[in-house]
Write a protein that binds this DNA or RNA. Structure first.
Lengths: 239, 239
DNA sequence: CCGATTAGTTCCGCAGAATGGAACATCATT
DNA sequence: AATGATGTTCCATTCTGCGGAACTAATCGG
């Protein structure tokens, strides 16, 4: 199980988590490794270009891992197709729009275009959230056979009313979109995107401040979202 | 130098480069490693969530590395400040706008908002290009003391007229912006962003199809770019 | 200004992890 | 069914990565 490999990623994640350059001792403390071990692995990571040492001797991550991953993301068919639609959706609604995919029991934010007046709280591109707690996630789960198991696993760690959520999912299946209700102050509307009859593994969503959201406005957003989803599904199918 | 660590990143990069799931043998062949070694390291990478094996047994990268790096990027001060300005610049110009930073002798594209009618060539977010070959890169180099050495290193591998470029840089320094001239069909305009009197390590740029670009339009773009740069510099300074 | 403390780096003997060759299993193809 | 290619497991060998400790360089406090 390549201990050094595992440790190197631990260290890299430790560097990335810290919002500022870390000291060797802190990294050693946080990872529970010997200083000399950390020092050697950091040396390797620096040599590989994944970490760097600033003038003061502190260590920080480089963009190398991100560059690596960005290639993966931007070459994902779903991303390439969605990018244009996402932007169009933003243009017509002027609200914050996001593209997410399902990864395990989480949704991962792949891309986001924020409204001119940004919302107070924001999910970052590259961040995760438990699928059953988000509009996007519910939109996808509603059409997935494994929804119940996902919901149950998430419920096990974050108190969640499983039966209520399952009925909500069946509503979502009928309506074609999901609403978030968990984060106060902002409402999200999510719609799943599926290709070729397979269970959906991506979703579009619109988020807007709840207070500003009249019923009429909400309906307009839903309509725009569903229309974009329809066109995007079509585009995906004919590839 | 932690051989296993180094090899694991080789394998990960190999997975990321391949645009589709790779077979074990191919990875072994490409990396020059033994099959059993690749197999074991891939097992480790899978266990760590950095790779996965699909139903057919092929291996592919996950988004793990990207998620890791996205946290680094989105918490970079320059990114956080620039995001809003970039979007504003796109709104006023309706053209493709980018944010780049200097990394070694390259520029790295951190963020990009593409025009409704996308240009044929596109640089991807997360991709690199030699700084002296791009408008953004020249805009930054013009104000950096180490410009000459960068130019010379790049010239060594891609035939480049060093004296001509150096004089161009001094023009850029006077004008405050740089023009690309290397990729036919598309013109880019770059402006460096510096904070606190330090040499710039970030730049904004606008790219538009050359044919559509009248002199008047070009001047308008330059003005918009310089104005955005000015406001962004101001925002950076007062942090 | 000088000990005391803490952090960073280097060294080195030892354990055991990683290595790679080969055998085995699995799958596709004819 | 036989062939070939590929994925996986096994195992003896060895060299790598390990961590304690020593050394050096900062930082701090009195």
């Amino acid at each position: 199980m390549d201990r050094a490999v595992s440790r190197s990623f631990d260290i890299l994640e430790c560097l990335a988590r810290a919002r500022q350059p870390s000291r060797l001792s802190d990294i050693a403390a946080e990872t529970g490794l010997q200083k000399s071990t950390v020092h050697r692995i950091l040396g390797t990571l620096c040599a590989l270009g994944h970490a760097r040492q600033d003038e003061t001797g502190r260590y920080g991550p480089t963009l190398r891992a991100w560059e690596l991953g960005a290639g993966v993301v931007t070459s994902m068919p779903i991303y390439r197709v969605a990018a244009g639609f996402l932007q169009a959706l933003h243009r017509t609604t002027a609200e914050t729009v996001s593209l997410t995919i399902l990864s395990g029991d989480d949704v991962v934010y792949l891309e986001k275009i924020v409204a001119a007046r940004p919302v107070r709280f924001y999910t970052r591109v590259g961040s995760r959230a438990p699928a059953p707690l988000t509009a996007s996630g519910k939109a996808m789960l509603a059409f997935r056979p494994d929804a119940r198991s996902v919901v149950e696993r998430v419920a096990a760690v974050s108190n969640l009313d499983v039966p209520a959520l399952m009925t909500e999912l069946s509503q979502v299946r009928q309506r074609g979109y999901a609403l978030s209700g968990y984060s106060p102050g902002v409402t999200s509307i999510g719609a799943a995107v599926a290709a070729g009859g397979a269970p959906p593994d991506a979703a579009l969503s619109i988020s807007a401040p709840t207070e500003r959201l009249t019923a009429r406005k909400r309906d307009a957003l839903i309509e725009a979202l569903l229309e974009t989803r329809a066109r995007m599904t079509e585009a995906l199918d004919q590839r």
